[in-house]
């Protein structure tokens, strides 16, 4: 499990945010929750579709928790289920994945936003645009002034833009987070931070990536020319995996934006 997950202790039970990477990890999450409260886990909210955000759904469902997901998110989970399971089995091994069956929310919500109130806490699920995966959402807890940003925000480490990602959509998501003006942003990876830090570590990189690549496309730059022009960004070299990902991100963003022109 290499992503951030979370939970919220309400007056009527616990709401878990992200079910972990496997059946076994889901149970370990529940054990960790039990070190804080004896209250039962009543809901699990899915905010994304990458393997470690939802492959633990099956365990929580067996325990009687309600899996809450937008239809967009659940659809992507179904589309990627086989490849995620194959990859997890290859990387983590059969023992680690024992009992794991890809399980999406039985009744996904056919809307781009959904609010639920559990034990005095309001949870606002909002789809803004596709991000790391299609159907990624933000989860805002207005009463707590917290946003679970999922893979719209990384802190400490650099993003990876994949062929199925939407870098421009990530920018829109980040702008929505700024409009919500939370006290705390829980990123997909890295420590929870304030909004200013999230902007410095993630928002500025995303906006610059998209605007600079778009400018290159509008100037009829070739892919190689754009990658060469944007190859070195000292402002972001401190982020972990910069050397591994930055040029790939420029490359991938060019291909994605070009395909949409």
């Amino acid at each position: 499990m290499n992503n951030n997950t979370g939970f919220v202790v309400t007056d009527d039970g616990v709401v878990v945010v992200g079910s972990g990477s496997s059946y076994r990890v889901a149970e370990m999450i529940a054990d960790a929750v039990a070190t804080v409260t004896d209250a039962p886990i009543t809901h699990v909210i899915n905010i994304g579709s990458q393997d470690h955000r939802w492959l633990g759904n099956g365990w929580f469902l067996e325990q009687g928790a309600e899996i809450v997901a937008l239809e967009r998110t659940a659809r992507t989970q179904e589309e990627f289920a086989e490849s995620h399971m194959n990859r997890s089995l290859r990387v983590l091994g059969e023992d680690a994945m024992a009992g794991t069956e890809p399980t999406v929310a039985p009744e996904p919500i056919e809307a781009d936003s959904h609010s639920l109130e559990v034990g005095g806490v309001e949870f606002d699920m909002m789809y803004v645009a596709d991000a790391h995966f299609p159907g990624d959402i933000l989860l805002h807890l207005p009463g707590e002034e917290v946003v679970f940003a999922g893979d719209v925000v990384y802190v400490e480490r650099i993003f990876g833009i994949h062929s199925w990602s939407d870098p421009a959509g990530k920018v829109k998501n980040f702008q929505r987070i700024e409009a919500l003006d939370p006290e705390i942003v829980v990123p997909g990876h890295g420590a929870a931070v304030d909004l200013e830090t999230a902007r410095r570590e993630a928002g500025e990189y995303l906006e610059r990536l998209v605007s600079e690549v778009r400018a290159g496309l509008e100037d009829w730059e070739t892919l190689d020319e754009t990658v060469e022009r944007l190859a070195d960004w000292p402002d972001f070299e401190h982020l972990l995996h910069y050397d591994q990902w930055h040029r790939r991100n420029v490359n991938q963003t060019y291909l994605i934006l070009e395909a949409r022109m």
């Binding site: 290499n2 979370g6 919220v8 999450i29 929750v33 807890l141 990876h189 929870a192």
Partner: peptide, 15 residues
Amino acid sequence: LTDRVYYFYGSTESR
């Protein structure tokens, strides 16, 4: 993070 909200700080590994 607050009286009610907790999170688990995962790895920053790229995989």
